[in-house]
């Protein structure tokens, strides 16, 4: 698979959801395209060191959403197109409220927008490093 997936235990987001999110993002970004074969449950489970049933749960959800399809004996394939995957707009929506709260708190502490962005960038970099 041309896309590298990784999961992060210890967060509020269950591992199967992390897998769904990353595959959906890869489809939306075009790095996974229609017709591409996905790793088997077992292959991906070993790759990510997670239980195979967790991978199955993620695949089942993406099949239900019409992004993947499995063919008996042949494996699981990407059938969704970027149009089927949620847009960047839709992915932003759930974060809007947190962003507003953060902006308000920054104002309360007298942080400028630039200072706030610096803080967010630093934290983002820290998370990336921990992966």
């Amino acid at each position: 698979m041309p896309v590298s997936l990784s999961v992060q235990p210890g967060t509020e987001v269950p591992i199967y959801r992390q897998i769904v999110r990353q595959v959906v993002e890869a489809i939306a970004a075009g790095s996974l395209s229609q017709g591409e074969r996905m790793p088997s449950h077992r292959e991906l489970a070993i790759l990510l060191a997670v239980a195979p049933l967790t991978v199955k749960k993620a695949y089942d959800e993406m099949e239900a959403r019409g992004l993947l399809a499995s063919r008996q004996g042949a494996g699981t394939f990407v059938i969704g197109t970027p149009a089927d995957a949620p847009s960047s707009q839709a992915r932003r929506a759930p974060l809007r409220e947190s962003a507003r709260a953060l902006a308000a708190e920054a104002a309360l502490h007298g942080l400028s927008l630039e200072e706030l962005l610096q803080l967010v960038r630093a934290e983002h970099a820290r998370l990336e490093n921990e992966r």
């Binding site: 999961v7 235990p9 210890g10 077992r42 997670v50 239980a51 195979p52």
Partner: peptide, 22 residues
């Protein structure tokens, strides 16, 4: 995996538990 075997494991590594356990 695939053999249908059941696993019971104790651990203090919560990350491992999240990765492996249902």
């Amino acid at each position: 995996s695939g053999a249908g075997s059941a696993i019971l494991f104790s651990s203090h590594q919560m990350g491992d538990v999240e990765r492996l356990a249902q």
